[in-house]
Design a protein around this nucleic acid. Structure first.
Lengths: 330, 330
DNA sequence: GAGTGCAATGCAAACGTTTGCAAAGAGATT
DNA sequence: AATCTCTTTGCAAACGTTTGCATTGCACTC
């Protein structure tokens, strides 16, 4: 039973409405009563109930965020960006996780909607087109982060041009003289196909016809990199582009254990630019996806959309970060 | 203007209360009307307002979590544990960040309280004893994660015994024959002093009198490890314990650049057991702090405390994880 | 045929706010 | 002295639920 506006009203011998107005510095309230009410509220340790406010104002000042899991470093980098952007505006985050399941993602969205978040952010959606049917029911701005499929009218999108990023990586290896370049893929239906496309485009643009065996499977885990290494050696490739940094780091670890010199025997480039890439051995060449920026822009878009509407989708450029895991072919 | 219980009531020619009961499968409602109401609600895409429910039930089914930043891998591991634990109970997380500032931490707590979270989790608090004054106003269970200072009556605590962890690390190095062992510290007022104590105790228990110069400063960043390396070489130590894995990874990277063999010339052990420690070169020997378990336990405690009360504080044991960055002294 | 019991439903208050409108006083103007 | 204006305050409805209690209707029972 926390103390309410009525308790204060009773103690101050005024009506609840007066208390409300006094606390909001409504000019219609006399200086005296305002002072009295405010000090009283402070003394009694009054904490306004945002849930009651939300009910009448029909605004919760809350952003709902759906992620696969916060343990994913990609996700937490994005979240950091979101946090930065909303800090000033007094919004708070309501977090829900899907564990990568489309079904649970939809549940999460529903749960957040019931809690009447002012807008929704979905990172790396697994449900994609399933939204089109639900979206009109959601009735609040939805910003997809790192999602390829375009969603209906109310869905906005901010993502990185990962195809371009993968192409950048490919061109980097090509420029170093590599011709036999493999690609380790990621989870299906994701930016994985985009990245693969960029890789293939990059190769073809340079007149290199890709060998289908160069396309290795993966789900974006470190183990994929470890598993892929023997194949790579068999295929006699000199460079490899990994779906993400985690896969690349796994490959680095496997290579060291197998005694494969990197970048001497094999050049590897990751994607994402996680903080740890700068600390690996050798330091990882990668493609920055601007995760924090992604989060920031998404949050800004959401807030803008809440305020009035009209916001435009964003596609960020990827940026090549050359470090030590790539070198010219001998 | 989302559709409400009243809209349905009007359409079904019943009162709002009947709709409410029908949706909750109240046995007093006839099978017919229940069916009618439920299908109608479904057709109209009804989404119950949790904010209205919260207001009358005085329960939000929400846990507030205060962290320094989600970008911190320690934090996100803990959060992952929290998420696991609450998934089943239908709780949702309200997230707030402090950026490591005590003032902003208190603000965050207040914000979450105004939003009437059912319980509060605070990870690696920077405000510590400042709570004692506020706690009675908070009026909801508070669980501190990874915090040393004990807070007042309503404050619970779950943490890892980091002193024991540091001692474990020290004993590990001693057992390998090391005698000159350095320690790189962490941010002040934190488990840093605990860890240092464990280190010192470990040394003294083995009859090794620590040299004060072996105590190097740091704030838990990778740069601290890099910066410390030259000092270490000057001091002629053969082993070093780092405040956390990040510092240790920084040291590994610096060592490679400086041509210092690890563990040949220097054994290094980290603390935390971040996922990346398993991928570093060499793979990092470290002390697991059970972050996910920490999060899980904290969430369970919070939920138990909401339900009735009586929960006991938890202190987890640290666990040594021996990998490749430590070796016997030659 | 009046009373009893039961099943199904509705009324209204409550949760803690905000806010349009009315009311009450106090001066100031005629 | 009556009216007007202005400042300060209060009333009451609204937001979308839940829930104790009252009401209704109906089939039984005596």
């Amino acid at each position: 039973m926390p103390i309410s506006i009525k308790t204060i009203a009773a103690k101050a011998n005024v009506s609840p409405s007066t208390v409300s107005r006094a606390l909001h510095n409504d000019p219609r309230i006399s200086e005296d009563t305002r002072q009295a009410v405010q000090t009283l509220a402070h003394e009694m340790g009054y904490m306004p109930s945002q849930v009651a406010r939300s009910l009448v104002l029909q605004r919760t000042h809350t952003l709902g965020v759906v992620v696969t899991t916060i343990a994913d470093p990609y996700v937490s980098q994005v979240m950091a960006g979101v946090e930065q952007a909303i800090a000033a505006d007094g919004y708070t985050l309501l977090l829900a996780t899907s564990n990568g399941s489309a079904e649970r993602e939809l549940q999460a969205v529903e749960s957040l909607c019931q809690r009447r978040v002012d807008a929704l952010l979905v990172v790396s959606s697994r449900a994609g087109d399933l939204y089109s049917s639900q979206l009109h029911q959601i009735g609040r701005p939805l910003v997809m982060i790192n999602n390829i499929q375009k969603v209906g009218s109310q869905g906005y999108s901010v993502c990185t041009d990962t195809a371009q990023g993968a192409q950048l990586a490919t061109e980097h290896l090509l420029a170093l003289g590599h011709r036999r370049i493999a690609f380790i893929g990621g989870p299906p239906g994701h930016s994985g196909s985009e990245r693969r496309r960029g890789y293939l485009d990059g190769l073809r643009a340079a007149g290199v016809e890709p060998d289908l065996r160069w396309l290795l499977p993966g789900v974006g885990a470190a183990a994929d990199g470890q598993r892929a290494l023997p194949w790579l050696l068999d295929l006699d490739v000199t460079g490899v582009i990994c779906y993400n940094d985690l896969t690349a780091l796994g490959m680095l670890a496997a290579a060291r254990e197998a005694g494969v010199e990197i970048p001497g025997a094999l050049s590897v480039v990751g994607m994402d630019n996680l903080p740890y890439g700068a600390l690996s051995t050798p330091r990882l060449t990668t493609v920055d996806q601007g995760m924090a920026e992604l989060g920031r822009r998404a949050a800004q878009m959401a807030i803008a959309a809440i305020a009035d509407g009209a916001v435009a989708d964003v596609v960020l450029e990827s940026r090549l970060v050359v470090r030590e895991s790539t070198a010219g072919v001998e």
